[in-house]
Amino acid sequence: MPEPRLDVLCIGNAIVDVIANATDEFLAQEGLTKDSMRLVDAEEAERLYDHMRPAREVSGGCAGNTAAGIAALGGRAGFIGQVAPDQLGGFYRHDLTAAGVEFSTPPVDVGVPTARSMILVTPDGHRTMNTFLGAAQELAVDVLDEEQIRSSGILYLEGYLWDPETARNAMVRAIEVAREARRKVAFSLSDLFCVDRHREGFTALIDEARIDILFANEAEILAMAGVPHLETAVAAIAPKVETLVVTRGAAGALAVRGGERADVPAEPVDKVVDTTGAGDLFAAGFLYGEATGKTLVQSLRLGAICAAEVIQHYGARPEADLRALAGELAA
């Protein structure tokens, strides 16, 4: 098998994040569930945007955030996602490529604008996401660069993109190409919303051994296994994948690979400002570790370091030097 040209190729929703402060009272007035993610249509996106406080825009989307984190660590990262040929699409492309990520998927005019997510951040750092998927859900099989997939050591896919059939077909084809090329496939369950909505499809991917590395947080793995206790859920899911990674917020993270298990604590932080992107950057650190031959513990520690950095400021992209923070782990 030839050496990969890219360490990790990420596939996901190309979304511009629109981030604003909000109070718990505002969430209640808008009928929003704190710390949740919901999909909205264009009309609701406009209505909520009009009600929000002044906001700032940053390129986002789970897989895009992960790709940016890998690049910040010094890894060779790529991204596949769909934007429209509009102002936000151009902004997204420039922002991601400026971060050092290879993004060659062409923009396509599918009659809807580039996706955006209105993210409301409460004073305790928790975020409530309201996402209009727009062009992102129109990612199609025919825009995939299959040679790019074959030349990537790890293919990483976000569960959020499983929702629309067109994008789901593209993800399935990408997995097929990666497995035919004997590359690793990593998959994130992304959100409890995704597990509840797509448990059957996710279960099939896992049971058919199409996933090598599975990412989940504690709530997602409990829902996926259909049990109330973490250790029972880990015992049920871990044997079905090569590597299972479970993040637990302030309680740290764990990973299981065969007979090996590793647990690491969360990195200490001065203040949690915004949890947006914590899981995405954890995945970036872990995948960078896996791509560069680190041990299971070292990969988990890299994930914890990246997650700790991103929750100390607004936005889901690193602002500090991740390589410096990781020290010898990033060497």
Rank of each mutant, 00 (worst) to 15 (best):
M1T: 15
L9S: 13
I11C: 00
N13K: 11
N13Y: 06
I15V: 14
A22L: 11
T23C: 07
F26Y: 15
Q29S: 09
L32N: 02
K34R: 13
D35L: 04
M37P: 06
R38S: 07
R38E: 13
R38V: 11
L39R: 01
V40E: 07
D41W: 01
D41V: 00
R47N: 04
Y49L: 12
M52P: 02
R53P: 00
R56D: 09
I70C: 14
I70G: 11
L73D: 07
G75Y: 15
Q87V: 11
Q87Y: 10
G89E: 05
G90Y: 05
G90N: 12
F91N: 10
D95E: 08
S104F: 01
P107G: 09
P107Y: 05
V108S: 05
P113E: 05
P113I: 13
T114A: 02
D124M: 05
T128I: 04
T131L: 13
A135F: 15
A135C: 05
Q137R: 15
L139R: 08
V143P: 15
D145H: 05
Q148H: 04
Q148K: 14
G153H: 05
E158Y: 03
W162H: 12
W162S: 15
D163M: 09
A170G: 07
A170W: 03
M171I: 11
M171W: 12
A174R: 09
A174N: 12
A174H: 10
I175D: 10
I175Q: 01
E176M: 11
R179G: 09
R179T: 11
R182A: 15
K184V: 15
A186H: 02
L189A: 07
C194F: 12
R197S: 07
H198V: 00
E200F: 00
R210K: 11
D212G: 06
L214I: 08
L214K: 07
N217A: 14
G226A: 00
P228E: 04
I237M: 00
E242I: 10
L244T: 07
R248D: 06
G258M: 08
G259N: 14
D263I: 14
D263Q: 13
E267W: 03
V269H: 11
D270H: 07
V273T: 03
D274Q: 07
D274N: 01
T275H: 13
T275I: 10
G279K: 15
G279N: 10
L281T: 09
A283V: 08
A284W: 12
Y288P: 06
Y288V: 01
E290P: 00
A291K: 08
T292W: 08
K294R: 15
T295P: 12
S299C: 09
L300N: 10
A304P: 05
I305P: 13
I305L: 08
C306A: 15
A308F: 11
I311V: 08
A316P: 02
R323T: 10
